[in-house]
Amino acid sequence: MPSLKDLRNRIGSVKQTRKITSAMKLVASSKLKRAQDQAERARPFAESMARTLANVARTVKGMPDAPALLSGSGKDENHLFIVATADRGLCGGFNTSIVRGARRRLAQLRADGKTAKFICVGRKGRDLLRRDHADLIEEYVDGVVAKRRLEYADAERIAAMVVDRFEAGAIDTATIIFNRFKTAISSELTFRQLVPATIPEVDEAPADDDTPSALYTFEPDEETILERLLPMNLAVQIFNALVENVASEQGARMAAMDNATRNAGEMIEQLTLSYNRQRQAAITKELIEIVSGAEAL
């Protein structure tokens, strides 16, 4: 049975913890707001990009010399995964779910006799993967997610790593693993294939196949445009994934800290209850001692 003083100390320390978790929740919710704003601002670009790319790709489709970034290397042997996680913990299952997804995919590929490598963005993913797959981590990109705002230049840097490896023939496909933002409290583990590029479907009436794109004039020509567009699209896809990931991270942290705050509250209630009970017991005991002492006289 803990003493009164012990109980008092524990109540004090749980109260401190609650203060910290509720502050972290507030910080996370304001960061979430900022991340959502950024995702909002990034959307028009991604939409126009997808539309144009679809238009251009449609005219090139079927051509024998389509760029390799679009058509693939013709093999499916060496896979590259960009594992996007957070730099910090205390956000529930956010980081572990991403890393678990990566591990599962790795096991599948290995069972099929294929190879996989990782590029880690975010410190937590690297720390977790390093334990058992240190040899597979090709590159670790530092200090991208910790910034106040994500910068497109960082996404470009990562895209360049992917393109260089692809062109050198070291990889056949590239996929980014991240948590797609759904609502503040829920996100979805997503594997987005980057290479070969997936071309979004245009929702314009596909009835007459070549009418919409045939209207466009291309300058200089489709192939040249596509060759520039594809690496750019890669960087944009990575950028968007990272933006969504940051929003999900803050959402997950907000939820985790909200839970922690509530748990601390419950704990304080229970501890206070047993503290009061014990104090009352001590008082009663003293009274009994006085009364029985008086009776004995």
Binding site: Q38, P220, V236
Partner: peptide, 23 residues
């Protein structure tokens, strides 16, 4: 509309846009 991945720089109506095309 003028957009970069990070933000929308300009949007609205105008009479003419002159831009540096590849050719």
């Amino acid at each position: 509309e003028l957009v970069s991945p990070e933000q929308r720089l300009a949007s609205g109506d105008c009479d003419m846009v002159v831009m540096p095309g590849e050719d």
